[in-house]
């Protein structure tokens, strides 16, 4: 089969690009420690979330010095916590979110950041972020979930240490 010299060159460059892309992602995961949504959140019974030790009373739980767990239930058309009351976490801490859904598939996106996950009934998404700046972030549901989907929003407040009150937000 006759392949033109330029085409061979192009083919080689294309393969190099592809291997390069895979390499950067592999390096990001193994070397730079970029955390991605996995299956380690486990499962829950979506019909009995109120009996769950954490999702039954969702909110912010301290798990260590400067370490917090945030349990969030997404449901038509609110985040709990997040919508009616903001999720409040202290600055310069490590925060692990645990997100699940009580009804249909939702999204949980901290606007303008890569803190972004799907919320699937029966499954728990976990991801960890570092809070490095005092500011408010918006949260949106980014998966269509029904006729008032566009009204499903919330807030994450990253507050100074001395303003943080661990009893807010459900813990």
């Amino acid at each position: 089969m006759e392949i033109h010299a330029y085409e061979k060159l192009w083919l080689g460059a294309a393969l190099l690009l592809i291997v390069g892309f895979i390499g950067t992602v592999a390096f990001g995961a193994v070397g730079a420690g970029v955390d991605m949504i996995d299956d380690d959140g486990g499962t829950v019974d979506p019909g009995a979330l109120d009996q769950h030790p954490k999702f039954g009373d969702p909110g912010v739980y301290q798990s260590g010095p400067n370490e917090y767990d945030v349990y969030v239930v997404a449901q038509q058309f609110q985040f709990q916590p997040g919508t009616a009351e903001a999720i409040e976490v202290p600055v310069d801490s490590t925060v692990t979110f645990h997100v699940t859904s009580a009804d249909v598939i939702h999204g949980f996106e901290v606007v303008g950041t890569n803190a972004n996950t799907m919320a699937i009934p029966g499954q728990v998404s976990t991801f960890t972020v570092e809070t490095d700046e005092v500011r408010d972030h918006g949260i949106v549901c980014n998966e269509y979930c029904g006729s008032a989907h566009h009204a499903m929003e919330g807030t994450v407040k990253v507050v100074p240490d001395d303003e943080f009150n661990a009893t807010d937000g459900g813990a």
């Binding site: 995961a29 996995d38 699937i120 499954q123 728990v124 998404s125």
Partner: peptide
Amino acid sequence: YLDPGIAEGFKF
């Protein structure tokens, strides 16, 4: 990629 319940290796 952003779904829980699927291991990272399968996504890779």
